[in-house]
Amino acid sequence: MNTTSPLERVLRGIAITLVILFFMFPIFWIVLMSFQTNATILQVPPSIFFEPTLQNYRGLITGQLVTDTSSLEIKFMGNLFNSLFLSTTSVAVGLVLGVPAAYAFARLKFRGSEDIAFTLLSFRFAPPLLVLLPLTIYFQQLGLANTYGGLIWVYQLIVLPLILWIVRGYFEDIPADIEYAYRIAGHRWWTTFRKIALPLAGPGIAAAALLAFIFAWNNFIFALVLASADKQPVTVGALAFITASGVQYGQIAAGIILSIAPTFALALYAQRYLVEGLSLGAVKG
């Protein structure tokens, strides 16, 4: 029944290779671009043989953007730091607020709980532009414009619903009996939350945090409007590569590589933890 002929296996292998090639090619190409000068990038026809150069990376790290005609100062490393700081802090704040809330929504059925949970999720539906203008005015009046605090606050719009809804699902998957058993054994609900619910929802929380981190990292519009140069993350900072004298493809490619590196590393690190999954085997007989 499950036996496959060798031919079938070969064909399947080819198909998988094609799919992988199709999806991985842009990334592969960008990696190549990041080691080329604009001149080699733009040559026709393109070639995958070229003399590699580190000038793009050097430029980004030193902050000196050297073009054919001039030398321009950019703050890419500052942007990278901003991205890291904003995303990490936003996710941290999101977890502190969202995980207990998710637990409450999962375990306590209070009046309007479904409505509140849904309202929080609906923040994700609204286009950010809708709220940006009033938000900008408020922020200016409150003195929050162009502060990390203000940005982190706005980022909760992205991070919080995500964490809330993903983590809530994981909490709901933990059989209530397991928590009851710990309570009956003599532990307070707070201890039960820390010792039972949190560890068991751990993989879910990690997944939610990772996803929230990526969403926060990729955000463009909030930061574009609400932050000026010294608070901008890479998504906004990358605009600087479109210079008067042309688009700096090499630097853009290197910038992309540098800016996906943290999320990529994080995903790789978390993967094995995520795949482990919930081990609730003890509950089912």
Binding site: D177, R183, A185, R188
Partner: peptide, 19 residues
């Protein structure tokens, strides 16, 4: 509260702490 009632309970589905 359950923790203050001085009871012990065994569940049909065991409800062991998996971790």
């Amino acid at each position: 509260e359950p923790e203050d009632r001085g009871i012990g309970m065994a569940f049909q589905n065991f409800a062991l702490f998996p971790h």
